[in-house]
Simulated scan of single mutants.
Amino acid sequence: MRAVIVAAGPVEDIPSLTPFIEENTVVIAVDGGVATLVQQGLAFDLAIGDFDSLGYTPEGAVIHPAEKDETDLELALRHVSEQYEVTDVLIFGATGGRLDMTLQNVYLLKQFPAARLVTKREEVRFLQEGHDQIKADQYHYLSFIPLVPTRLTLRGVKYPLTDHDVPVGGSLTVSNEWTDHQLADVTVHTGEVIVLRSLSDVELPPPTLR
């Protein structure tokens, strides 16, 4: 089951949401994300937040106080993880505004590893120790940002690595690319990374995810 969560980030960073909403997808509006969904003519199953950025409270919303210890997005992610059996969570409207909020939203992926952030140009996910395969789809660049000192093996990419130590703050694993097979084999031997799939600098259609 998929969950689509729409937060209150700038609308210019949010693609058309219709291609991401499959059968049995639950759609959650987070505060000002209500306006984005309304603008795109889409319904939502639930609204969550303090609604300070929306200006009104939708009917049936889960209301939280403005002064609290978690962001509205974190509360929405927690609600989804507790109330639904989801295997895929796509988050929109979580980047492009205040830098502190964007960074925090990226770090939320560590707490909710089934979730991915999606913009018009990028998809962001969290990987911990283990093996994964990452498709290129329509993306061009593949980057790995270690959150802690990490050891990686990368195959199916232009710049492969074998059991290689990658420090925090280094740029070795930024802007890699897929080879002709369009499928990267990634092993995180130790550590944890943020993974970004990005479009090229050439203008391309908005992303769709498989």
Rank of each mutant, 00 (worst) to 15 (best):
M1V: 11
M1Q: 11
V4G: 08
I5F: 03
A7F: 01
A8T: 02
A8S: 15
I14M: 09
S16H: 13
L17S: 02
L17H: 03
P19A: 08
P19C: 07
E22G: 09
E23G: 11
I28N: 07
A29V: 00
V30L: 05
D31V: 11
G33C: 09
A35F: 00
F44I: 02
I48G: 03
G49T: 06
G49P: 14
F51R: 06
S53W: 03
T57L: 09
I63E: 05
H64I: 10
A66M: 05
E67V: 13
K68P: 08
L73K: 04
L75C: 06
L77G: 02
R78E: 15
S81E: 14
I91P: 02
I91R: 01
I91Y: 06
F92K: 04
F92W: 04
R98K: 14
D100Q: 04
Q104L: 13
N105Q: 13
Q111V: 12
F112Q: 08
A115R: 06
A115V: 11
L117G: 07
V118T: 03
R121K: 11
F126H: 15
L127T: 01
L127S: 05
Q128G: 14
Q133W: 12
I134S: 03
I134V: 15
I134P: 01
Y139M: 10
P146Y: 15
V148R: 13
V148H: 06
V148C: 06
R155Q: 15
P160T: 09
D163H: 15
V166R: 10
V166P: 05
L172G: 00
N176G: 04
W178H: 12
T187H: 13
V188S: 06
H189D: 00
G191T: 13
E192P: 04
E192W: 08
R197N: 01
L199Q: 14
S200K: 07
E203C: 12
P206C: 00
P207S: 08
P207D: 00
T208W: 01
